[in-house]
Nucleic acid binder design. Structure first.
Lengths: 233, 233
DNA sequence: AAGTGGTCTAGACCACTCC
DNA sequence: GAGTGGTCTAGACCACTTA
């Protein structure tokens, strides 16, 4: 048996979820307090707290001290996106992984990149371009600006042996980051890199990371038509 | 002062995170057990447990009974996407919201839609098409297949007054769902709906939802060039 | 001022796995 | 079998917010 006891936190969560989805507690309504629910379910308040905290994190209820917990009017659900290393993403699809470094140079950061990283326009950064291959076919195109000064041992690495993507994940930790998803028309270099027609629709993932406020890297990953990211809601 | 005490769960998490990002505990290494850390930080084991559970949810460590906790070799970080009602998404950008129903009919579900929902090919569903406007300009194009039988009161609703999107959020709860993000070339109908050229790159969000196994709806939302989703990492 | 959620504790038992 | 994390409890105090 893999039954979930009703007085376990998962059981309480399931029952609260049922009351919300079946409109026993309607959107906007206040739901009973933790203490009252603990009495009802015959469990400790901490158990109810754990269940309600998870529902709040999932966007289903709103909690405020003194005011109590309410069913959210607009659920505003949250989905968790997993951001793997590209090699694992490729291998996870059953493809053999390879990558190829196209270009490595030191250059002035474009305005948009400087703005994203929050650095002086005109700063010199390392610029890298590479393509990730799945079974020999282009899987993603990588265009990266890197603050090499913030990454020790960087100059000694051979990015033909390990991908920049993976090396940085292992060697350039970050404390803050943001990620933007969008669609765009493939630029000429991206099109060439991916082996598609210029102007074809590509899926774009832009990631920017800092380590305790110090800018690390800004990367644009471009995926050819047919690529998609899926997650549970 | 908004200091976080080191023996609070947030303080413990911050300190563990520091040891991971500064490579004091290297990728792949086993880190001390909860009991030992509790002694070190002078707090209860439950407090350490809460901190480590959050790090595990963020993808930074792996936990296994008996084997202990390890720093993940490939962080595999997770980002949380918020999925708001489109009206709120539009208004959140400071635009005035309107929507327009383009088409409503009963028709046989296309094969792809039937497959996504897990229903018999050829089943008859309600098909709706609408456009969401921000300050009068197309913001998103909605193409939805709906299992009207699963949604009571559906036939009495005037979707010129409230958008399908919002009405369903309020009236058609679901227990499971998935969401797929991709880029595509605008089809002729989408292009017309969004007022862009056919073939232009569009950002596509496809959502499918069930309520305790019963299919509810499959929707394809298409956003014109320039749209993006952003989140913290 | 008072009531709610947020957190912490010390202890306990259980479930899972690795040895 | 033994050691780790997973969960639960009963109680306590605190922080925040709103009445």
């Amino acid at each position: 048996m893999n039954e979930i006891a009703i007085n376990s936190w998962a059981g309480v969560r399931a029952e609260l979820l049922r009351r919300i989805t079946e409109r026993i507690w309607k959107p906007g309504e206040t739901i009973p307090g933790e203490e009252q629910l603990a009495r009802e379910f015959g469990c400790a308040r901490a158990t109810v707290n754990r269940a309600m905290r998870e529902l709040a994190e999932a966007g289903l209820i709103e909690r405020r001290r003194r005011a109590g917990s309410r069913v959210r009017v607009s659920p505003d659900r949250r989905a968790v996106l997993r951001i793997p290393v590209i090699r694992l993403e490729v291998e996870g699809r059953g493809l053999g992984y390879r990558h190829r470094l196209i270009e490595q140079e030191t250059a002035m950061a474009p305005l948009a990149v400087a703005a994203r990283l929050g650095i002086e326009p005109g700063s010199r950064l390392t610029h890298l371009r590479a393509v990730h291959l799945g079974d020999g076919r282009p899987f993603a195109c990588e265009d990266r600006w890197l603050n090499a000064a913030a990454v020790p041992d960087f100059s000694q690495v051979d990015f033909n042996a390990i991908s920049i993507n993976e090396w940085l994940v292992l060697n350039a930790p970050f404390t803050e980051g943001d990620i933007t998803l969008s669609a765009a028309a493939a630029g000429p270099r991206e099109a060439e890199c991916l082996g598609i027609a210029a102007g074809a629709p590509v899926f774009v993932v832009e990631r920017t990371t800092w380590n305790r406020g110090e800018p690390i890297t800004a990367v644009r990953l471009t995926y050819p038509p047919g690529y998609s990211m899926t997650t549970r809601l």
